[in-house]
Write a protein that binds this DNA or RNA. Structure first.
Length: 1035
RNA sequence: GGUCCCGUAGCUUAGUCGGUUAAAGCGCUGGUCUCACAUACCAGAGAGCGCAGGUUCGAGUCCUGCCGGGACCACCA
């Protein structure tokens, strides 16, 4: 006899035990199974979390859905790979480490140097990678941990290097200029999302430039007078009548004497704004830079040094070396002294600041590397557009295809360089030299690398040595001086010798690193071992799994060929462009095939105030807090129930008072509070009055302090469900004594058996269909409703009597175990731990079980088969009959409740109904006693209403319950009148509709027919109620 | 500014091809510790679907405009 289950499920114990069990058995591991042709492989690549910090609920949502799909497909017989890994997340990670270093030690990266900084970041990465992977395991993620990858590991680095080299060789990579957000204090470029805007007190100055060869002057305004030194044009609107005659003329900048053209540009200049004329400073303003790109002849002059001082290019020695703000004042004074100043007004100016140094950002022109998105013959952007348009890649929900297509349609070149130290270093070595100087050593080296040294004098030349096609590719480009050329060499992966030759010859590797998205764009094929085609990818060095499953040796990369393309990518909408589009594009370029067939875009997690959860906002919630409180299964089940197709998920958060467990709703102030040095903020409990520190992503509570943890009542939904399921099994196990496996003949099935089989078969299709469409919320609802409202509320209740009856007990036990077995398999992808726990408990007492015919249960529900149930079990008419019974029971319970009849008191029921309905009622008469403590005294067409009865009218039957001495005639009359009013309302609505000629004429005949039938039914029902009322009034 | 999405009970959300007087969970009210479950059971109250128009026999569902919220992109001399 198995041990009794406790009354409540203990999630923590089950989670530990079963996760270890799965890992040891290698259930999560996936290896090529070319022989298994019937079920195709199923791979999902994790949207690699950044190692910037711990996972929050957004990740938990993302991870739950991927695991759900992976487990579902695994049960369907697919070799299901869920590939785990993390992203180095260049800027974001370097920024957190740098910020911490600055705050705690007052050091900038220039103080510690490249190598030391990168080492610090590696330490950070190790810590957070560990944390992230353990969080995923806590969530029950069935990843193949042996294959864990990191974007900077050897396998991924090789792919990145190869990708870059191929792009370079195919002339898809070029060096160009671009404006970046420059932090002059830290002397670094800052990403857009690390910039915040703040209004500052500024001025709006108006100056004039004299028109060359004329007495005229042209007035313009600016908030940054120092940029006059870098002006290369003045711009007016092409149809501005005031300036028509000046277009094409030149003005002189009085500060440095430079003459610049007056150009017309409809996008930059607006007639109604200010004077209508605008100065153009391409090197220091994004709009002006865009204007320059439309008018490249005006040129670009960068007047700033990296530290924010003015350089020699400004054309006036008195400004050189001074800070830009100092020059702002000087330039203004000088213009005033020269008589070109028209005054200024005070203005609030929105100014971008660096989030890290809190100093103002300067737009700064810098050298960058780009990938051409529209170059023939590759047409990278177009190839990715085609893949979606012809259906090789499908979005779920489909509307997200538009985001993807619109963005790719712009075909903007991809800037892939970042001025950082954390990332893949750009594999290009360059040397600038003077053509005039004879440089025999250089020529010799170029020859040695396999080129004709004549090319050195030909800017634009492309160099691919025959002998080292995969090792080296070069370009000759113009240098900054007229006689200068720059030689760029890209070195392929694994060619350190070539790198040494270059460096010995004075070449220097580009200091920049690649955009993080460059490496994550390769994720689907890089993690599978591309570009190595002659062996499987190595397993992770620091394999975090408990699995001992070895990988097969092979002379081909079977992992890549078997699992690529993957089946589905599951992600959130904010990276459809940055990541999804680029994976498609690189997949097509490197592999000749799309990286995945489906893209499922799930909702975003919002906090209780409607803000998306993110690390930078600090409103993330650690899934561990919720898992500790509610259990993994509850968290997963609740999350899956959120994951619909339209709405984002709002998650109002509460703090749980550590003293009395009262939930205190989180306020915006609490969420944002950052301790200013001293005491940590506290939250006060309204119930017990005590205050306590609370968890926050901004700080750690003081050691030893009781902490109010973040919780969310919404997860009680899942917790309660798990408890319900647990107790259903507990009930089963308590009633399985003497269980023997055996078939059940179809003719032995009772009404409720056939009903539950019909329902089970119906929901099997619903769950499978909705999961195939990634409608997780619908699948979850179906399962919950079936488990709770059908299986527990009705079927289990109806089995109780049969389980007590010696003769009926064996069949009832077999049905009970069979239904539970199927249910646990359906639930495994959603709530794997409790499903496994119950599966194993059930196996102790019923190792052989099944529906109608028993078979041996799988050793784990994780590797059991996904239920596929016979379609002919579905029986709508039978379900309809069963619903009639349910309606009757509910009506009886209703009467009991209204008249406050003690649960132990039996009442009698008389049913007036058609003979076939009466027969059904008689068949299940035992259930009336069982479910409503009611004796079915009579059922048939000739049943009369006994005096002093409570009554109810259903669509196909009327019921009477004699309540001598209890019945309150007045109250009963009122109740019936209310019912009659409700029916009359329905009837009026239908009559009106049917009286409308247009409805009868234009609506489809079946709709009209349906309305007529409904009306007739309602009238019959109303008649019954009116009879009851008449009797009550009379007697 | 552009594109897309969302506004349904106090809260969080379903609502398929437009078709009975709109559904669920939580919360609330009343009653039950009934031999699986008080994280439970039974019953009840509670919204006319952001606002204004339109199309239609019929609109929560389709169209237009507005209001509110969000996301992505562009931009802010």
């Amino acid at each position: 006899m198995p041990t009794d289950l406790p009354k409540q499920y203990d999630p923590q114990a089950a989670q530990q035990q079963w996760y270890a069990f799965w890992e040891q058995r290698g259930y999560c591991d996936a290896d090529p199974q070319p022989d298994r042709a019937a079920t195709p492989p199923h791979a999902i690549m994790i949207p690699l979390p950044n190692v910037t910090g711990a996972l929050h609920m957004g990740h938990a949502l993302n991870g739950t859905l991927q695991d759900l799909v992976t487990r579902y497909r695994r049960m369907q017989g697919c070799e299901a790979l869920w590939m785990p890994g993390t992203d180095h997340a260049g800027i974001a990670t370097q920024a957190v480490v740098e910020r911490r270093m600055l705050e705690e030690e007052g050091l900038t990266r220039h103080d510690v140097g490249r190598e030391a900084l990168v080492n610090r970041i590696w330490k950070w990465k190790d810590a957070y990678e560990r944390r992230i992977l353990s969080q995923l395991k806590q969530l029950g993620a069935s990843c193949d941990w042996r294959r864990t990858r990191f974007t900077l590991d050897e396998v991924c680095s090789k792919a990145v290097r190869r990708m870059f080299f191929r792009f370079f060789k195919d002339s898809l990579i070029y060096r160009g200029k671009r404006l970046v957000n420059w932090d002059t204090y830290l002397q670094t470029a800052v990403a857009d999302d690390e910039v915040f805007e703040e209004e500052v007190d500024g001025k709006f100055w108006t100056f004039r430039y004299p028109v060359v060869g004329s007495d005229e002057q042209i007035a313009f305004s600016t908030t940054r007078p120092e940029t006059m030194l870098g002006d290369t044009a003045v711009c007016v609107h092409p149809s501005d009548p005031r300036y028509q005659h000046l277009i094409g003329r030149k003005v002189r900048i009085p500060l440095n004497g430079r003459e610049i053209p007056i150009i017309a540009d409809a996008l930059l200049a607006k007639i109604e704004m200010g004077t209508g004329a605008v100065k153009v400073t391409p090197a220091h303003d994004p709009n002006d830079y865009a204007c320059y790109q439309r008018h490249p002849e005006i040129g670009v002059i960068n007047i700033l040094n990296p530290d924010g001082t003015v350089n020699a290019a400004c054309g006036n020695d008195s400004y050189v070396g001074r800070d830009r703000y100092e020059v702002r004042d000087l330039a203004t004074e000088d213009m005033a002294a020269l008589g070109y100043f028209d005054g200024s007004e005070d203005r609030k100016i929105p100014l971008k600041h660096s989030d890290r140094s809190k100093t103002p950002i300067e737009p700064y022109l810098s050298d960058q590397w780009f990938v051409k998105m529209d170059a023939e013959p590759f047409r990278l952007a177009q190839s990715a557009i085609d893949a979606v348009q012809d259906g090789r890649v499908r979005f779920f929900p489909s509307r997200y295809a538009k985001t993807y297509l619109d963005w790719l349609g712009e075909k903007r070149d991809w800037c892939i360089s970042r001025q950082l130290w954390w990332g893949h270093r750009i594999p290009v070595w360059s040397l600038t030299f003077n053509l005039v100087e004879n440089n025999p050593e250089l020529r010799e080296m170029v020859e040695k690398l396999g080129f004709d040294s004549q090319v050195l004098g030909k800017p634009g030349a492309k160099l691919i040595p025959k002998a080292q096609e995969d090792a080296l590719s070069g370009q000759v480009v113009h240098g900054s001086g007229p006689d200068e050329v720059t030689l760029l060499f890209c070195v392929g992966d694994g060619n350190e010798r070539v790198e040494q030759i270059l460096e010995a010859a004075g070449f220097q590797q580009d200091p920049d690193v690649l955009d993080t998205w460059f490496s994550s764009a390769l994720w689907p094929h890089a993690t599978l071992g591309w570009p190595d085609l002659d062996h499987n990818p190595p397993l992770a060095d620091n394999d975090p799994s408990q699995s001992t499953k070895p990988q097969a040796q092979s002379t081909k990369n079977e992992v890549l060929s078997y699992f690529y393309p993957t089946r589905v990518l599951i992600t959130s909408r904010d990276i459809i462009t940055l990541w999804v589009a680029r994976m498609v594009l690189t997949g097509l370029y490197n592999m000749g095939d799309v990286p995945f067939h489906h893209v499922h875009v799930h909702p975003k997690m919002l906090d209780g105030f409607g803000q998306t959860m993110s690390k930078s906002k600090g409103n993330g919630v650690d899934p561990a807090d919720l898992i500790n409180k509610y259990g993994t299964d509850a968290v997963r089940f609740t999350i899956a129930s959120f994951a619909g197709e339209t709405q984002d998920v709002r998650l109002p958060i509460s703090y749980e008072c550590p003293h009395c467990e009262t939930l205190i709703p989180q306020t915006l102030e609490q969420q944002k509070a950052i301790p200013a040095g001293g005491a940590k903020p506290r939250v006060k409990c309204p119930k017990c009055g005590q205050s306590s520190q609370y968890s926050s992503p901004w700080f750690d509570p003081d050691p030893g302090e009781p902490v109010a943890r973040m919780v969310s009542e919404r997860f009680e939904y899942g917790r309660n469900f798990c408890n319900k399921l647990w107790n259903a099994c507990r009930f089963a196990i308590l009633n399985l004594e003497g269980y023997t496996p055996g078939p059940i003949a179809a003719e032995d099935l009772k009404l409720e058996d056939r009903w539950i089989l019909s329902r089970l078969s119906t929901i099997a299709e619903e769950i499978t269909t909705t999961l195939d469409r990634y409608q997780f919320d619908a699948a979850t609802r179906t399962l919950r409703e079936f488990t709770w409202n059908e299986f527990c509320d009705w079927y289990l209740e109806m089995l109780k009597a049969r389980l007590r009856d010696e003769a009926q007990r064996p069949a009832a036990q077999r049905m009970l175990v069979g239904v539970l077995d199927t249910l646990l398999r359906f639930l495994q992808p959603f709530t794997p731990f409790i499903a496994e726990e119950l599966w194993q408990r059930l196996a102790e007492i019923a190792p052989e079980r099944g529906l109608l015919a028993p078979e041996a249960a799988a050793e784990s529900v994780m590797v059991a088969s996904w239920p596929v149930l016979p379609v002919d079990w579905r029986d709508r008419p039978l379900e309809r009959r069963f619903e009639r019974l349910q309606e009757t029971i509910v009506a009886v319970r209703n009467v009991r409740s209204i008249y406050n009849i003690a649960p132990g008191t039996q009442i009698k029921l008389y049913m007036r109904c058609a003979p076939d309905v009466a027969r059904d009622m008689q068949d299940v008469s035992a259930q009336f006693d069982n479910l409503a403590k009611t004796l079915l005294a009579a059922a048939g067409a000739d049943v009369e209403r006994p005096p002093a009865s409570a009554s109810f009218a259903l669509s196909e039957a009327d019921g009477y319950i004699p309540l001598e001495g209890v019945i309150d005639r007045k109250a009963e009359l009122a109740r019936q009148r209310k019912e009659a009013d409700k029916l009359r309302g329905f009837i009026t609505g239908h009559e009106k509709k049917l009286a409308n000629e247009s409805f009868v004429a234009k609506a489809p005949p079946e709709v009209v027919q349906q309305a007529r039938e409904t009306l007739a039914g309602l009238k019959t029902q109303l008649q019954s109620v009116e009879d009851i009322i008449a009797q009550l009034s009379a007697g």
